[in-house]
């Protein structure tokens, strides 16, 4: 028998997407509303006061990639973590564990679905943004590639979170207390060039800085840091998540007693 059963993977993928549509209000409408609020507050109200924009880009447009990333990180993580945590919590995971399904099918199904949701969300947010600001994307293909990469990486990260968590509290604590602050401090709404020393150097230790700047470069061709470093770090993060998940499946940690 083959090492990858596409039908099993496809079944998980479809199931997960269906589950998302069941909660469409929460998974689609909520992020759209939040993003719109950010545009109103930061883009229109504050950005209106900033005559010169940021890095030569109109402030409202400047925050588009940052806002997109803010949503992508949060939603990819929470979608994938809930996807695997819920069956663990209810016991329904017995079926997956007793099926002829390995780590590859499981990841393709759960992470693929979470990443797909993130892509749909990205498209909706970028469309919503056009209602508030004028922006163009300098490197649209790189932008798509980068969005894909970030969605996949953080879906993998969320998957690990959903396996690690043994309570709903732990499930929400990581996105709330780690991801969210890092994203806000990671130059979502400003260029880290604006920070005085030593904060500028400190900010460079925040991995989200590299994600935001990578995405911002694909939009406007400008970045505070080397985009190669951005790409390298993102790929390294993805590889680390995949390796960790492979290890989890081999040991059965938190999945099999």
């Amino acid at each position: 028998m083959s090492l990858f059963n596409a039908r099993s993977a496809g079944t998980i993928y479809k199931q997960e997407l269906l589950r998302a549509f069941r909660t469409a209000l929460q998974s689609i409408l909520a992020p759209v509303l939040t993003t719109s609020l950010y545009f109103v507050v930061f883009g229109a109200a504050i950005g209106g006061q900033m005559q010169h924009g940021m890095d030569g880009v109109n402030y409202g447009a400047f925050i588009v990639p940052g806002l997109l990333l803010l949503t992508l990180l949060g939603e990819s993580t929470s979608n994938a973590s809930f996807g695997i945590y819920m069956p663990r919590f209810t016991g329904a995971i017995y079926e997956l564990l007793s099926a002829p399904v390995g780590v590859a099918e499981t990841l393709a199904g759960f992470v693929g679905a979470a990443a797909t949701k993130s892509l749909i969300l990205a498209a909706i947010i970028l469309t919503t943004a056009t209602l508030f600001v004028d922006y163009t994307i300098v490197h649209p293909f790189y932008a798509l590639g980068f969005i894909l990469l970030v969605s996949a990486s953080f879906s993998l990260f969320g998957f690990i979170l959903g396996i690690w968590a043994d309570s709903f509290e732990k499930l929400s604590v990581v996105p709330m207390l780690i991801l969210m602050p890092l994203t806000f401090l990671g130059g979502t709404f400003y260029s880290i060039d604006m920070l005085p020393q030593p904060w500028r150097t400190v900010a460079l230790a925040n991995p989200v800085v590299y994600l935001v700047n990578g995405l911002r470069w694909t939009f406007y061709g400008k970045s505070d840091v080397s985009i190669w470093l951005s790409l390298g770090l993102t790929l390294a993060f993805l590889a680390a998540c995949v390796a960790l998940i492979a290890f989890i499946f081999r040991t059965g940690w938190r999945l099999r007693n």
Binding site: R7, S8, T11, Q15, T90, A92, E95, L96, A99, V101
Partner: peptide
Amino acid sequence: ELATDMFEPVMRSVTHSRGLFGL
């Protein structure tokens, strides 16, 4: 234990099981 996705309709749930096993 009666553990499964309770929001699924019966037919879809059973069909899902078959697919999960690669058939």
